Amino acid sequence: ETKSLTLVLHRDSGSLGFNIIGGRPSVDNHDGSSSEGIFVSKIVDSGPAAKEGGLQIHDRIIEVNGRDLSRATHDQAVEAFKTAKEPIVVQVLRR
């Protein structure tokens, strides 16, 4: 079962304390579909994302501050987090 969660993150020394993997390839599949998503791959101990109620590894990131990342490329997702103003509201899907 997958549930949708909304989390609020604040940077600590400029970092949110997690890494992402995935992202849509720069070239779409011929039918326009994509199974890619942006997923949390690593969480830094005691970083902002590790706090209670924070992110978990394998969370799929859907949205950052209202910006849809469900079909974003990896670079677009990285840029969305880099430029996001605080508080950073992150919507994820968690299995």
Rank of each mutant, 00 (worst) to 15 (best):
T2Y: 15
T2V: 13
T2L: 10
K3D: 14
K3L: 09
L5R: 04
L5P: 01
T6G: 04
V8M: 15
V8D: 03
V8P: 04
V8F: 15
H10W: 09
R11C: 05
R11D: 03
R11I: 03
D12F: 11
D12Y: 09
D12K: 14
G14D: 14
G14N: 13
S15D: 14
S15I: 07
G17V: 02
G17C: 03
F18Q: 01
N19L: 05
N19D: 14
N19A: 06
I20Q: 01
G22D: 07
G22K: 11
G23T: 10
G23N: 10
R24E: 15
R24K: 12
S26W: 09
V27Q: 14
D28C: 10
D28S: 12
H30G: 10
H30D: 13
H30W: 11
D31G: 13
D31W: 07
G32I: 12
G32K: 14
S33P: 11
S33N: 13
S33M: 08
S34C: 14
S34Y: 11
S34G: 11
S35H: 10
E36A: 08
G37K: 00
G37E: 03
I38C: 04
I38S: 01
F39C: 04
F39Q: 04
F39P: 01
F39N: 02
F39G: 00
I43D: 02
V44P: 06
V44K: 10
D45E: 15
D45P: 12
S46H: 15
S46M: 09
S46Y: 10
S46I: 06
G47M: 09
G47Q: 06
G47N: 11
A50V: 06
A50M: 08
A50G: 12
K51Q: 12
E52H: 13
G53N: 09
G53F: 06
G54P: 04
L55Q: 00
I57L: 15
H58R: 08
R60T: 02
R60W: 02
R60Q: 15
I61H: 00
I61Y: 00
I61K: 00
I62R: 02
I62D: 00
N65P: 01
G66W: 01
G66R: 04
R67Y: 14
D68T: 03
L69S: 00
L69T: 04
R71C: 14
A72V: 08
A72C: 08
A72Q: 01
A72M: 05
T73Q: 04
D75E: 15
F81I: 04
A84G: 02
A84V: 07
I88Y: 04
I88S: 01
I88Q: 00
I88H: 01
V89H: 12
V89W: 04
V89L: 07
Q91N: 12
V92I: 09
V92N: 03
V92D: 00
L93E: 12
R94H: 00
R94I: 02
R94E: 01
R95V: 06
R95W: 05
